[in-house]
Amino acid sequence: MRHTLAVLVENHPGVLSRVSGLFSRRGFNIESLAVGPTEKPDISRMTIVVEGDDYVIEQVSKQLNKLVDVIKVSDISSQASVSRELVLIKVDADPSVRSQIIQIVEIFRANIVDVGKNSMIIELTGDKDKVTAMEELLKQFGIKELVRTGIVAMNRGS
């Protein structure tokens, strides 16, 4: 099963390598990892998506908690939460298909952030399913490049 962990860490150099090193040496797989500062400048937040059963997730959380730089680990996949990912997709877009692509972009409430002679860059924010659905639809035109930020997530309510 896929779990999303929100990990609060000290904003110190080397913390990312401590965390990612822990995953590799203990044989855990990271599906995606996003990191950035929080509302407090000395604390960063990592959103880590891990694939594993309950045993693996419990071990991941406990081992993460052992790192002195890790302040808090919460598994937010089982709770009511919002998760989003941002993708940039560069598609082949010669003038004949542009309008079709624009239609798709509108349906998905995505944005076109760059238009070239024969290509466009589309920016899409959404959860995993939305991103995958759009990617499927754009494949027919030819995807030249695709980049995803990895999921960031937050619990709903207070």
Partner: peptide, 16 residues
């Protein structure tokens, strides 16, 4: 050495 010993120290420091 902080990178090398991260897996088997409880914690380590590079003093800046």
């Amino acid at each position: 050495i902080t990178g090398a010993t991260a897996p088997f120290t409880k914690h380590n420091y590079l003093v800046k």
